[in-house]
Amino acid sequence: MPRKSDIESAFHHAIRLEQSGRRTVTTADFVRELEKVNWYWSQKEANKWIEFYVTTFKDVSTQEGDARTFMLYNPNGGL
């Protein structure tokens, strides 16, 4: 049975550290991690959750659509 607490955990497991030092999350990676804990969301549902509950990541997608990329940023100045 899926638990709500697993959603945030899945988000943290989806975070990737790039060679440049940026921390990013793709919608596809987040959905894949959710499936591991029995949550089956569309990319649109995953994006809605990220936009509502995660304030430290901003959308840096280069294309339109539901396959998006979010990057960690410092809201107090700087990236």
Rank of each mutant, 00 (worst) to 15 (best):
T55P: 08
L34A: 05
E33I: 06
G65P: 04
H12M: 15
R22S: 12
I15W: 08
E8K: 12
D66E: 14
T26S: 15
D59I: 07
Q63Y: 13
L72D: 03
S5P: 00
R3S: 13
T26K: 03
T26F: 08
E64A: 13
Q63W: 10
K4Y: 09
G65K: 01
A10L: 08
P2S: 10
D29K: 10
V31D: 01
Y73Q: 07
Q43D: 09
V37Y: 06
T62L: 05
T56L: 09
M71Q: 15
A28W: 01
A67V: 09
A67H: 08
E51G: 01
K36L: 10
G77E: 07
E45V: 14
F11L: 07
D6H: 13
W39E: 07
S5M: 07
S9L: 12
F11H: 08
N38H: 09
I7W: 05
V25C: 03
S61P: 08
S20E: 11
H12P: 01
L72A: 13
D6P: 00
F70L: 03
V37M: 02
Y73G: 03
V37Q: 05
N76H: 14
S5Y: 07
A67I: 02
T55Y: 11
N74E: 11
M71H: 06
E8Y: 13
N38E: 12
A10I: 04
F11Y: 13
F70N: 00
E45Q: 15
K44P: 01
W49A: 00
S20C: 08
F57Q: 04
W49Q: 04
A10D: 03
E45F: 06
I15V: 15
I15G: 02
K58C: 11
A14V: 00
G77L: 06
T69E: 14
L17W: 11
R68A: 04
V54R: 11
G65T: 03
F52S: 11
F11C: 05
G78V: 10
W41D: 04
I15P: 04
K4L: 12
W49L: 03
F57T: 00
R3E: 14
D6F: 07
W49V: 05
K4N: 14
G78S: 09
K4G: 14
K36R: 15
E45K: 14
L34I: 13
W49P: 01
Q19W: 09
L17I: 13
R22V: 09
K58P: 03
A10M: 10
V60G: 07
S9T: 04
G78A: 09
T56C: 09
L17K: 15
V54A: 05
I7C: 03
H13E: 13
T69K: 09
N38P: 00
Y53K: 11
R16S: 07
K58I: 12
H12N: 15
S5G: 14
V31H: 00
D66V: 02
A28M: 05
R32M: 09
K4A: 10
E45T: 15
Y53D: 12
Q19F: 08
